[in-house]
């Protein structure tokens, strides 16, 4: 099957390894990856900060670039959530019936990586090997937004060599929240310190999540405080192969 990759502007620029990992996994599973180069940003940051009219062209752009694909994957739960939950609303606010119809047809074909693997492709073991002590932070948009459930944990538990440690109070927000981290920096940081305490308490070497945005926030603090704990996107763990 041909699977179109929506890398997201954020991963494209800051976390290219996540995209490479998605390509590795899907090709290893025998799929074709397409990368439409006209893609930029889903418009989430604009939209969620209130800049709805600035977001609209980006939404239209996404719909135009991806509507020809049968199956679209993205390694970002929050961007997938934007497409699946907010595009419809945005089309309604803009009173754009045509856009609303296109969104309705497109949105169900957009999958977050773990959803694609577990729910659509029916896989749990993707042939990964990752001999590290790992904990997993389920990001808000992955569990409460698009509701991936325990798909990421299922995938992690099937990785060979992994020492998977559940994170206490895992479902609590890390405090990122997009522009929230800047607009309410103190509150954001207070939330992050509790998250950090829970992560370091697991004595994991690596903290994994399905959203690099939250990971950048968490990783920034882990690095600042010299904890030695690294961050990795779920895709990177799943992409690492035997004796790699």
């Amino acid at each position: 099957m041909t699977i179109a990759l929506f890398i997201t502007c954020f991963n494209d620029t800051l976390f290219p390894n996540t995209g490479k990992a998605v390509v590795t996994i899907l090709e290893r599973l025998g799929h074709q990856v397409a990368f439409p180069e006209e893609q930029t940003c889903c418009g989430q940051m604009h939209f969620n900060t209130g800049y709805q009219s600035e977001a609209l062209p980006l939404i239209k752009r996404f719909v135009r670039v991806f509507s020809e694909y049968e199956c679209i994957v993205s390694p970002s739960a929050s961007c997938v959530g934007m497409v699946r939950d907010m595009y419809q609303y945005a089309a309604e606010v803009a009173k754009d019936k045509g856009l609303a119809a296109e969104v309705k047809a497109l949105a169900p074909r957009v999958y977050e990586l773990s959803e694609l693997l577990v729910n659509k492709l029916g896989l749990v073991d993707v042939g990964a090997y990752y001999p590290h002590r790992v904990t997993y932070h389920p990001t808000c948009h992955s569990i409460r937004g698009i509701r991936v459930g325990d798909a990421p944990e299922q995938l992690l538990r099937a990785v060979r060599g992994i020492d998977y440690v559940p994170l206490p109070a895992a479902e609590e927000c890390c405090g990122f929240g997009g522009t929230f981290a800047i607009k309410n920096a103190d509150t954001s940081m207070a939330m992050l310190s509790d998250k950090m305490r829970n992560i370091t308490g697991t004595r994991a070497e690596v903290c994994v999540a399905a959203d690099n945005s939250c990971l950048m926030h968490i990783g920034g603090a882990l690095h600042r405080q010299r904890t030695g704990v690294k961050i990795a996107h779920l895709a990177e763990v799943l992409a690492s192969g035997e004796q790699a």
């Binding site: 950048m216 990783g219 920034g220």
Partner: peptide, 24 residues
């Protein structure tokens, strides 16, 4: 505005190669 971020946490830098450059 990055100051509000880096007051309390480090910011990971932009790597040399973007994903799309790698892809190309």
């Amino acid at each position: 505005p990055l100051g509000a971020w880096t007051a309390m946490r480090d910011l990971q830098a932009i790597p040399d190669q973007t994903f799309r450059q790698w892809w190309r």
